[in-house]
Structure formats: C-alpha cells, structure tokens
Nucleic acid binder design. Structure first.
Lengths: 335, 335
DNA sequence: TTGAAAGCGCTAACAG
DNA sequence: CTGTTAGCGCTTTCAA
C-alpha cells in the first residue's frame, strides 16, 4: 500500500495526498474526506524510509554507552529516550560492553548516516575513532564525558563540587579522619574526584594518610573493588571514622566489607557514595551519597542536540550540572 | 558524496561501484583499485536510508520495554542488542514508563515500518494496540510475556518451576512456616508464581495462613511494597521462619523492613527472591534468589526474530526458560 | 566484466 | 486548491 494506491483509490493526485498528510497545503473538505476514506480502506501507513530518503534525515538519534546494565547509564538512557521520543526521534541504543569491535561498528553507523545526531556517554578505547566521528560531520553531544574537541558541547556533573559537598557534610558531622576508596580512575571524572578529595583535605588541614586513600589499579567489578578496598582499610591499626567512595557501587562493596566484618555502619564508620543510583536507597543502611542528576543530564544532552539540529547553534561548550547531597542512613555524627 | 560521484571520480559506471561494494558481481582488479581510490579521495560512505528504501527493509529492530531503569529490562536489553548488533541490525529502544501515549507512538513506529521486527517485553495497558500490531504484519516475538495470539512466539521463564525450586530449597533447610510477599499480580507471570506457591504448600501439607500470604493491591515502588509487607508480617504474633518474594525488589524491601526492626536475616528469618537482578548480590546479606536468565531470554527472543526474518518460520510458540536457584546468604537451616 | 536504465515510496517545487 | 514532475541515493535486472 503506497501513497500512489491511496491517490488512485481516492481519485486524486499523489501530491494531494502528500500535502494532506503533511499539512503542507490546504485541502478541500471533500477531497480530505475521500483521502481519509481511502487510507482507511487500504489501511495505508506512510513509509518512513522513503520519507527519510527524501528529507535527507533519519529521524533517529544514537545513544552510545558502555552498558545499559549499569544503572547510571540506564537512567541517563531514560532521560535521553524520553525527550527524543517527545521530539519525534527514535533512539538507537548502542551498548558496547567496552568492546573495541563494537565501538568500531557504532562509528560506522554514524558515518553511514543512520542517525541524525548522537549522544555520546562513552570514552573510546580506540582514540582514533574520535577523529572519524568528527569528520563524519554528524552532530554530537558528550554527556558525562569532558570535552574532547571544540566541535561538541559537553554535559558533566561538577565532580569537584560533589566531593566537596560530601566532605563538608562529614566535617560538619564532626569527622576529621576521612578515607577515600576509588575504582581505577580511567576517566577524567574519577581523576577530578580524587584530586578534589586530596585538595580539600589539604586545604582544611585534615589528616591525609596514604593508607586511607585506596585506589584500585585493575579494572573489575566495582562492588568487588569496594569490598576488597573496604577489607584492606579495616586492616589498618588506625582506621578513619568515615570514608567517601568514588561511586555508589564501590561504596556498596565497602558497606558489605564493613558489615561482614562486624563493623557497624554508621555507628563505627560513616560511608558516603557518589552517583545516587537506585541501589543506594535499597541497601541497608541506605546510602548517603552525592547525587548526579543522570536523568537530567541525559535530557540536557539531547536538548542541546535537538537545538543543534534545528540550526540553533548556541549551547555552551561545557555545562556543569550541580550535584546534590542526599542524606540517608550511612553517616552519623562524631563527638 | 554519493555513489554517482564515486563512479564519476573513478571513471566507471554507477552500477559497477554498487556491485563492487556489495560483492554482487565480479569486478576487475584495476577497476576495483580505481573505485577504492575514489572512495578514499572523496571519503565516501554509502547512505543507509537509500539502501533501505531500495531493499525494503530498515535494518532496525524495535525493543519495547516499560523501563530501562529496571535492571531486569536492562539486562534483557543487553541480550537483545548484543545479538541484534552481531547480526547487523540496530536496535531502537522504546521505554514507555507505562504511559499510554508512548505505547501508541511505539505502535505507530512499527506500523510505519521503521523496524523490520520487534521484541516485545511489555504488556499493553491499551488492549486494542495488540490488534494494530498484529495487523501491521511486522514480525514480533514476546519475551517475558505469555502468548497473546498464535502469530508470535513467546519466551518466558518457567515461573512455576522457579517458585517450586525456592520452596523445595527452603523445605530442605527445614522450613515449614513459609510466607509469600507479592507486588500486585498485574501480569500473568506474577499470577503463576502466586498460584505455584499456594499449590506447592497445599500439596506438601504445609501450613497456609492468610496472614502470611501478603499481596499488595496498589501499584507503586516495589521496594517500598516489600518494606510495607515485611513490616506487616512482623506484626503477626506467629511469624513464618522464611518468606519467598515475588521479585528481588520486593525481597530487598522486606530485607530492609526486617533488618531495621532488629530481626536478623537469615538467623531469624530466611528470605528468597525472584529474578536475580544485580542488586541481589549487592545487598547485605546477599540475597538467595531464583534466577531468571534475562540476558539469555533477550538473546533467544531476537534469535527467533532473526530466524523469522530469514524465512525460517519454525520456532516453538512457547519457550520455557529454566530458572536457576542461586544460593547466597539470606537463607539458613532450621532444626 | 561493465553500463544504462528503471524504479523503491515519498516530498516539494511549479504550473494550472 | 489540485496535479505533474523531478528527484533523494541506491540496487538490480538486462544488454552489451
């Protein structure tokens, strides 16, 4: 069933049907009725592929993330799909599980113009792919990734401020002996969090012990990392009274390590995470954490992208989203 | 840069370039070289939309789920994207958050042939949409949804067997007083789980008390449901020594309810969940649960779909995936 | 082995 | 307001 069939059935010209369907020209009431009836009779639906070819667009946006299974990216994805769909775009999900081969094929996807634009919440393993993406000319926006060039705007949480909020909170609770547990800082965000921790402690004249700043070297399950690091911390003769973790998953791992060693949280040690994934409120005790507004970051990302696609090219190169400290039950005052 | 440009640049015919690119006819070595050079020089990439129009397909599959943020669907989605991408299809993600309006627009998407096929892991609010989907003629497969017609195959976990495995395990541990906590049974799977529980208890002559079978009426956050139901259970003068929950989220809520009331798990009460989402292993104590192989279910679903798209139309109407009991730390023996 | 030509289903001038 | 027509970029006969 093509538009041609509808036109024939309705006894009007092809273009009239098109105009009617697109509202691109006024159509007489009777003609309109005839067309409507024909469409109904033939159960006609316009073909998007043809429309896209003609309009030179795909009505699809790409979303590039490492892993949907990671609640952080899942929430981001929801933000992205919600606004994209609202604007009439479908979103093509590309989750690579950090496999180089899939990175490659995602880049091909955009090079072949299968998408009108792309939200990238991913740091490539293969550096050279950035270049191919750039030269494809497809508009992109980075989310949770710091700027890599001056082509694409970037939306990230203010990592420094987030860590400071956590630390200020712990200090206000009377803590001075504070540790830091981190997964391998393989992206800039994690580096910034660690630096912010160090800098705050130094600035405030708080004790800064090497044995309290535990940074994992090898990439593996982050809850396990937290668990290992938590156990390690427990082995020190002098323990900190609070720890901040580089992410909620690490925090949850540490929580498990503490609880399973009979160390009570928050009575014996306070814990604060980073991200505020759903999990944070589900564990016991529920986790006090620095919330990254992931959904909003996703939203903002696509909104920029949509603006760009509409020719408005004036979004800021770097947007810092304000993190929020979410107080739950894993912290307690001292003295 | 179109294929025409490449042909001109290489000094050959348009169709020769096409043949070369698709391997659909042999091409002389020199011609081949000229074409390759031209492609290189012009940085040409074939346009997918045009190809799709010609081939009358979209190379895209739709994935319809309520919510990516729900770890169950996230894992399923990963299974789907992994195999779809492997087969050269992109996947369009459609997450509705149970909004009728979005259901509607997803159905339009398939009616307009924006996808070659669709994996549906969703039960519509608006019943009539099933009909529209069916009459669109687009191949579909149901995952985690029981068959609705004889057009589409369905892949679900064997819910009855799952509950039985949980119960058998608890009984083997010496439990006889067992409760059941459930979210509102708004889909068949949940109904089946509840029935399986009831039927097992009756069959084995185990005590079946109304106050121990708590089924929430209103739809809301499932962890909260578990929490409420857990607290309610604690109010009974005689408590069960074990509970099985309709899902991990409910189980986690119950866990929180117990722990925060000073009831120890598993010492005072054993808990088993259903699903085995990541969360299950992250809480403390980690949750013993009935694993639904979600990733595999997603895989299987698309595999069926791909088979269908290749004309092989012989997949079973109903595939029951075997659930697996995952023993962790939330259960303990009695007597 | 290569090339000319006819569309795929739709949009958008343009003319009437 | 309605109709004619020329493509969008590619695939695929069919003939040379």
């Amino acid at each position: 069933m093509t538009m041609r069939d509808v036109a024939k059935e309705a006894g009007v010209a092809l273009s009239t049907v098109s105009h009617f369907l697109n509202g691109t020209a006024p159509v007489a009431p009777e003609t309109r009725k005839k067309i409507l009836e024909a469409i109904e009779r033939l159960n006609y639906r316009p073909d998007f592929t043809a429309r896209n070819l003609k309009r030179q667009k795909t009505s699809a946006l790409g979303l590039f993330i490492p892993d949907v299974t990671n609640p952080f990216y899942a929430e981001l994805a929801q933000g992205v799909t919600d606004v994209a769909q609202g604007a009439g775009y479908s979103v093509i999900l590309y989750a690579t599980s950090y496999k180089e081969k899939l990175e490659e094929s995602f880049v091909s996807l955009v090079e072949q113009h299968q998408v009108d634009g792309v939200v990238i919440a991913y740091s490539f393993i293969a550096e050279r792919l950035w270049g191919r993406l750039a030269s494809s000319g497809v508009p992109a926006v980075l989310v949770d990734v710091y700027p890599t060039n001056d082509l694409w705007p970037s939306v990230v949480v203010d990592n420094e401020k987030g860590v400071e909020k956590a630390l200020r909170y712990l200090v206000s609770l009377g803590h001075t002996d504070i540790g830091y547990l981190s997964e391998p800082p393989y992206v800039l965000s994690l580096v910034k969090r660690q630096r912010a921790f160090l800098s705050f402690m130094k600035r405030k004249g708080l004790p800064l012990r090497d044995e309290w700043v535990l940074v994992e070297k090898t990439q593996r399950n982050r809850v396990e990392i937290g668990f290992t690091l938590g156990k390690k911390l427990l082995k020190e003769k002098k323990r900190p009274t609070a720890v901040v973790a580089s992410s909620d998953l690490v925090a949850v791992g540490a929580l498990k390590a503490f609880l399973s060693s009979g160390v009570r949280v928050p009575e014996d040690i306070s814990v604060v995470g980073f991200d505020d994934i759903l999990l944070a409120s589900y564990v016991h005790p529920s986790l006090t954490t620095v919330r990254q507004p992931k959904y909003e970051m996703g939203r903002t990302g696509v909104e920029f992208l949509l603006q760009f696609l509409q020719g408005k090219n004036d979004c800021p190169p770097l947007t810092l989203i304000e993190p929020v400290l979410v107080e739950r039950d894993s912290c307690q005052g001292r003295g």
